[in-house]
């Protein structure tokens, strides 16, 4: 077994008296598509917030490439190669699709406090934006305001922005939430394409997506990872059935 690229070790998170994450242990291997499933309120989003720097864990270690990132700020976590999307669409609504992606790409090229160069003439940046537009299939919509995109287009844009920093690890928080069947298939294909050569950690409620997309699945119940394994192993796991999948998967 290769060394995990992202590893949660005995992670706890409490909000006052509420103990949301209780001793979570999770290893994500390089190059795999790893899904986290669990009933509502299990702490899936909290787990993502901990990994991406939104919250600091109360206890425990989060290792990214062997280095502890627990408690780092979101911007620092991003700089170390972990990028995330959000459950609620989180884009720059009042500017164009192109601008959304350019803002995302510029950081990778260390363009933050630069006021002596024209953004339109940043050849590398603009090429990468065009590449991303092709990848997320929004080239035609480049000059549209992000707020005027359809819902699934906005989700695609969100994924594109997550991809912009060329991260090793991508966290997608319910990318298919609120989508029709067609949109879900479309987005699943997109995710398969863009995560080629990267590591994906995904939270998703649509079980057909999870079982067809993920190499391995972890089940989170009441803040605890109760099982990790291949889709077949998870289907056959008695504890999982009892806690979550129930009759539906049996």
């Amino acid at each position: 077994m290769s060394t995990p690229i992202l590893s949660l070790q005995h992670v706890h998170k409490s909000f006052g008296p509420a103990h949301i994450i209780r001793d979570a242990n999770l290893d994500v291997l390089p190059g795999e598509r790893h899904a986290v499933i669990g009933p509502n309120g299990a702490g899936k989003s909290t787990l993502f917030h901990l990994c991406s720097g939104q919250f600091a864990p109360t206890e425990g270690k989060i290792l990214l490439n062997g280095k502890n990132i627990a408690g780092l700020k979101p911007a620092e976590v991003n700089r170390r190669g972990l990028a995330r999307s959000f459950q609620i669409t989180n884009i720059f609504p009042g500017v164009t699709v192109f601008e959304n992606l350019r803002l995302a790409v510029m950081r990778k090229h260390n363009l933050q406090f630069v006021f002596w160069r024209s953004a339109a003439r940043l050849r590398l940046v603009n090429e990468e934006v065009d590449d991303l537009l092709t990848k997320i299939r929004l080239t035609e919509r480049a000059q549209t305001l992000a707020s005027q995109l359809s819902y699934s287009e906005q989700r695609s844009l969100e994924i594109g922005m997550t991809l912009a920093s060329d991260p090793q690890v991508i966290l997608l928080d319910e990318p298919m939430a609120g989508m029709s069947h067609e949109e879900t298939d479309y987005t699943a294909g997109l995710i398969r394409e863009i995560t080629e050569g990267r590591t994906l950690l995904i939270v998703e409620h649509d079980m057909s997506v999870v079982f067809s997309l993920a190499h391995r699945i972890s089940v989170l119940v009441y803040g605890e990872i109760i099982a990790t394994g291949t889709p077949e192993e998870i289907r056959g796991n008695a504890r999982v059935k009892e806690a979550y999948l129930g009759e539906e998967a049996a």
């Binding site: 979101p74 911007a75 991003n78 009042g94 601008e99 803002l103």
Partner: peptide, 15 residues
């Protein structure tokens, strides 16, 4: 513009 539109997202992009 990014700051105006969504400062939270900028932080998660590494700014």
């Amino acid at each position: 513009l990014g700051l105006r539109e969504n400062a939270h997202r900028l932080r998660f992009l590494g700014y």
